[in-house]
Each structure stands twice: as structure tokens, then as C-alpha cells.
């Protein structure tokens, strides 16, 4: 009796936990995203910190990257805002690849958000007047999934279109190199 009860308890705890995870994966984001200014101010594009004896504060994390819904929205927006025209499906073209481990301006969601909003000098447009902030966060989350930096469960599985590469979910994580504007936090 007692052991049965214990088992039930354990099971329901598991169930609840599973539900919770599933919830955060599927839920739309209703909370406010981190304010853009705060993000942009805390993003660094150099790993060199003269006189500093500690690492800089990491940019606010992106809750969008825990949501499969947000990531799949990000994937759609990546096509709609023509990121795909310059970066292809991550392999690059006019712009650099986004599915590899080589980052010029940083791989954290905050860095990518900043890249999208401010642009970058060698041909990356500034989408500030085009893309609302919450969408930029969704796109940033999706961009991270391209190099396997998001948990499998939230990364897109099967492509809707002609298959030109392994899906994001089956892309092995590429440990980011390049600048370390903030300590990399990997799942």
C-alpha cells in the first residue's frame, strides 16, 4: 500500500515535471522580452577587457530559446525577412554561415539580437526599423538552433521545404569559437 502510494507520488511528480517542460516548450511567450537597450548595452564584441579582473556580466538570457513555438516562429521569420537570401539555410552566401562554430560577433542570443537590430559593418543590414523586438528574439533563438545550440526538443525537426541540409534538431552542437563577448553558457 505504502509502496504503491510512493510509486504513484513519484509517477505523478514525473508527470508534472514532464508537463511543465512540455508547457514551456509549447507555450507562446506572454512575458516581456528583455529590453533592447539593456541587451545592446551588455553585449560585447570583443573578448579583451583591459583592466578587468572579472568577466563582464552576461547579456540577459533569451527565454524564447526554451520555447519550440518561438523557435518555429523564428524559423518562419528567418525566411520572411530574407535572412535566408544572404545566409541560405545556415551555410551562408553573401553573409557568413550561421550553422558552424565560427562567430564574428558572438553566438549568445543577446549578441545575435544586437546583430539583427544594429546590423554589422560588412553588409549585415540593420533591421531596427523593420523587425519588432520580440520577433528579433525569436529569430535569434532560431539562429542558435542552426548550430545545434538549443535543446533538441525545441529545435525544428523536419523542414517544410526541399531538404537541403540536416534539420536543426539533428545538427550536432557546434561549440562556438570566435569572440567571447560573454561567457558562453551551454546546455
Amino acid at each position: 500500500m505504502r509502496s504503491n502510494f510512493q510509486l504513484a507520488l513519484v509517477l505523478s511528480a514525473f508527470g508534472a515535471a514532464a508537463l511543465l517542460v512540455a508547457c514551456s516548450r509549447e507555450d507562446r511567450i506572454l512575458r516581456q522580452p528583455p529590453p533592447a537597450n539593456q541587451t545592446i548595452n551588455s553585449v560585447q564584441v570583443s573578448g579583451l577587457n583591459p583592466g578587468a579582473n572579472s568577466m563582464p556580466t552576461p547579456p540577459p538570457s533569451n527565454m524564447y530559446q526554451e520555447s519550440a513555438y518561438a523557435v518555429s516562429e523564428g524559423q518562419k521569420l528567418y525566411e520572411q525577412y530574407n535572412c535566408v537570401g544572404c545566409h541560405a539555410h545556415g551555410g551562408g552566401g553573401i553573409g557568413p554561415p550561421l550553422m558552424d562554430n565560427n562567430w564574428i560577433y558572438g553566438s549568445e542570443a543577446g549578441n545575435i539580437f544586437t546583430t539583427i537590430m544594429q546590423g554589422r559593418p560588412n553588409g549585415m543590414p540593420s533591421f531596427r526599423n523593420r523587425v519588432p523586438e520580440y520577433q528579433a528574439w525569436e529569430i535569434a533563438a532560431y539562429v542558435r538552433s542552426m548550430s545545434g545550440l538549443l535543446p533538441k526538443g525545441v529545435s525544428p525537426g523536419r523542414p517544410d521545404h526541399m531538404s537541403v541540409k540536416p534539420s536543426e534538431a539533428s545538427t550536432p552542437p557546434q561549440t562556438p569559437t570566435g569572440i567571447t563577448g560573454s561567457p558562453e553558457q551551454h546546455q
Partner: peptide, 21 residues
């Protein structure tokens, strides 16, 4: 030659408008 000049990733066959493949 963009695959070399631009350091493209050919795991994505659509890179460089499909030329990378």
C-alpha cells in the same frame, strides 16, 4: 568559388544559392 572565399558551410546544400552543393 564563394565556398572558399566566403568560408561557406556545404552541409547546407543551398549555400551560395545552391552552388555550394
Amino acid at each position: 568559388g564563394a565556398i572558399v572565399a566566403g568560408g561557406l558551410d556545404p552541409r547546407d546544400e543551398s549555400a551560395a544559392l545552391g552552388f555550394a552543393a
